[in-house]
Design a protein around this nucleic acid. Structure first.
Length: 670
DNA sequence: AATCGTCTGCTTTTT
DNA sequence: GCAGACGATT
């Protein structure tokens, strides 16, 4: 059983208050995950059936971590019966059994942002006129916002954006596909409009817990409402001060006005921090205090005062990178701090370039968190598109992706006429391909290509419908059959690229094979899981370890002994656009999130000059810096820092830097 | 069908 | 200053 005596009084209250609405305001580093996992284990100990407990998270990573940590406290058989998943995965569960009520089939495809954008572009090209144009990305943002606010569009709206929205939604349904937002919209609709579905799900769980509640949007709130309507045993955990996804539709009022959504909740504040020194918490508190709309909290710890926070002005972005890297090197040499203990946090990904260059030069290992996902790779998307076509023949976006990959003589003109047919006959491309009237008007070559393609898809559909077939084996066969690897090699510019892409194909098949070994739920299940869990290679790629380069957003939830916040300048943090959009508070929370990542030391730097879009631009220190508690900070003179080595090890790193500088200026070795 | 060139427009990105 | 998108060229 969980060790309740390890908890502080507030944590204990959070764990043992199990009935009725509970709001746990968990400040940064206050043992939030421990509270949730202990609470689950406590519920089980009280005799609650594991099937009756639901814990919802935002990311698969969080769900996985939570399940692992609970598993270590309780019996294995019980932990398997718990439902711990993301909002989106929960919605897929709800939709799988009843989506037919809304006019979709259970083998529906889930479209990611790329598919979504393709489809929106198609709608725009159909509807836009030479006078009225629309940016696909803008349209996507609009559509996503509209869906999350549950806006209904009239079919005959004259505004182009609305027309595109309508067309897009129609296309999705025709393709038997849903986008990420639809997962929430449709699941909520099922619960609202169909009493039998509602009855099923409001009895399904007796205890509902939601992690990172400050990031929920309106729809997610409604969903939680439905699930907890009868018993009201809903426990939400979050921190309004760490709400940094407002721009993605997160509704901070869900946590700020929780008592309007669930009546008379127990509200528990966790303020004892187990991560940072009091100097770090001091500046964190002094910054976040300036936000007007918040639930007042003040973090403290028993970890002692620690070093003062260094605030460093540097001449320009080059010197900033130099400062960070040489400081990392200095600490590593003098105190044998492992590289993994360092993180550099920035507002924009573009800021990592100089840092990377510097770290490479000094041969310091590093990793960049948040680079493009495995599942966005061309070759992976291609294979998934094949599978998606086989699983759901209506999925035109996937079909279009692979119709001529590898090339089989089906060019743009053939595709154009197929699309025209499909529009006028209101049938999916797959059906059009089979119709004689369409085949009749084609050249021999394209007609042959189409017939071969249709046969290919049919034959693999048959293969996969045989019982006891391993999907991974069939895919291996498919890859060989269509000569995909050869095609890939031809389209690559370098042998390394080809090798890398081939490896991705193998990795993809491995993932599939692994999915089947752990008793997966067929092809649709695999496709749903892959489109909802897009970063597994991060942990399966342990070779990359070192200094972490990461954005403020991506750093939420992580901690590092030594942290550098760089580019803390007006118009970077807060970002220039936030002033126009009135989201300075969110920028301040972003700063707060960055500060509270640090465990032992924290350095904050800003430049006097910075290269922006190629040309040097003067910079001004962020207005947030004025709020830092002066008792916890020291202003560091950059000049002194780099010219006065204090002891042997700093001298060594200094020499290393000098050598490096000299090497850089030597025209002979660039 | 592929490739080259020019234009544009610039955060953050859990699913 | 660079990437991504789109259009014109071979």
């Amino acid at each position: 059983m969980a060790r309740l005596f390890d908890l502080n009084p507030q944590q204990l209250q959070a764990v043992t208050t199990t009935s009725g609405p509970v709001l746990i305001l968990a400040g940064a580093g206050t043992g939030k995950t421990r509270v949730i996992t202990t609470r689950i284990s406590y519920l089980l100990h009280q005799g609650i059936e594991p099937e009756k407990i639901l814990a919802v998270t935002f990311t698969n990573k969080a769900a996985k971590e939570m399940r692992e940590r609970v598993s270590s406290m309780i019996e294995r058989a019980n932990s398997r019966k718990l439902t711990i998943c993301t909002f989106h995965a929960l919605c897929v569960k709800i939709l799988r059994s009843d989506i037919d009520k809304l006019g979709y089939k259970t083998n529906f495809a889930i479209y990611d942002e790329t598919d979504q954008l393709d489809l929106i572009r198609k709608a725009i090209s159909c509807l836009a006129t030479p006078i009225e144009k629309l940016d696909a990305n803008l349209a996507r943002n609009y559509i996503s916002k509209a869906k999350n606010q549950r806006l209904k569009i009239a079919p005959a709206e004259k505004d182009l954006t609305a027309a595109v929205f309508h067309r897009y939604q129609q296309d999705l349904q025709n393709y038997n596909a849903v986008d990420f937002d639809d997962l929430l919209v449709l699941a909520t609709r099922l619960l609202e409009e169909f009493p039998d579905v509602q009855a099923k799900w409001e009895r399904r769980f007796d205890f509902v817990m939601v992690d990172e509640f400050q990031d929920t949007n309106q729809l997610q709130m409604e969903l939680v409402h439905h699930l907890a309507r009868v018993h009201q045993n809903v426990c939400v955990v979050g921190d309004d001060d760490q709400s940094i996804y407002g721009w993605r539709g997160a509704e901070i009022s869900n946590i700020l006005e929780f008592e309007h959504h669930f009546s008379r909740p127990t509200i528990i504040k966790l303020e004892q921090n187990y991560r940072s020194t009091n100097a770090i918490l001091g500046v964190a508190n002094s910054v976040i205090r300036h936000n007007p709309r918040r639930r007042p909290k003040s973090l403290w710890s028993e970890n002692g005062d620690g070093d003062r926070i260094r605030v460093v002005q540097v001449p320009d972005d080059e010197e900033e990178a130099n400062f960070v890297t040489s400081d990392i090197q200095r600490l590593q040499l003098s105190e044998h701090v492992p590289w993994t203990d360092f993180a550099v946090i920035f507002r924009m990904n573009a800021q990592s370039r100089l840092l990377e260059a510097n770290l490479r030069r000094l041969q310091i290992p590093y990793r960049i968190v948040g680079s493009r996902s495995f599942f966005d790779r061309r070759e992976v998307k291609d294979l998934l598109a094949y599978l998606s076509c086989i699983a759901n023949p209506q999925d035109d976006i996937s079909l279009l992706r692979i119709i001529n990959t590898p090339a089989r003589g089906i060019g743009p003109s053939t595709i154009q006429s197929a699309l025209a047919f499909s529009n006028s006959e209101k049938k999916s491309l797959c059906e059009i391909f089979r119709s004689d009237s369409f085949q009749a008007q084609l050249t021999k070559r394209s007609s042959l290509g189409i017939r071969q393609f249709v046969e290919l898809i049919d034959s693999y559909e048959t293969k996969l419908s045989q019982p006891l077939t391993r999907i991974a084996d069939v895919v291996t066969e498919l890859v060989r059959d269509i000569g995909y690897i050869e095609n890939l090699r031809r389209s690559c510019n370098s042998p390394e690229e080809a090798l890398n892409r081939e490896e991705n194909v193998r990795e993809m098949i491995r993932t599939l094979s692994e999915y089947e070994s752990r008793g997966g739920d067929g092809l649709p299940g695999f496709l749903a899981e892959t489109s909802l869990d897009r970063d597994r290679q991060e942990d399966s790629d342990p070779g990359k370890e070192g200094v972490t380069l990461i954005t403020f957003h991506a750093a939420k939830g992580l901690e590092f002994p030594h942290v550098f916040l760089v580019g803390i300048e007006e118009s970077i943090l807060p970002h220039a656009r936030s002033k126009l959009e009135g989201s300075i508070d969110e920028e301040r929370r972003l700063f707060y999130v960055g500060i509270t990542r640090a465990m032992r030391t924290l350095a904050i730097s800003y430049c006097a000059n910075r290269k922006k879009y190629g040309s040097p631009t003067p910079c001004y220190p962020s207005s947030f810096l004025q709020d830092l508690d002066p008792h916890c900070t020291e202003i560091v003179n950059f000049h002194e820092l780099t010219t006065k080595p204090a002891n042997e090890s700093t001298a060594r790193s200094h020499f290393a830097k000098m050598r490096e500088l000299l090497a850089r200026k030597d025209p002979g070795c660039s």
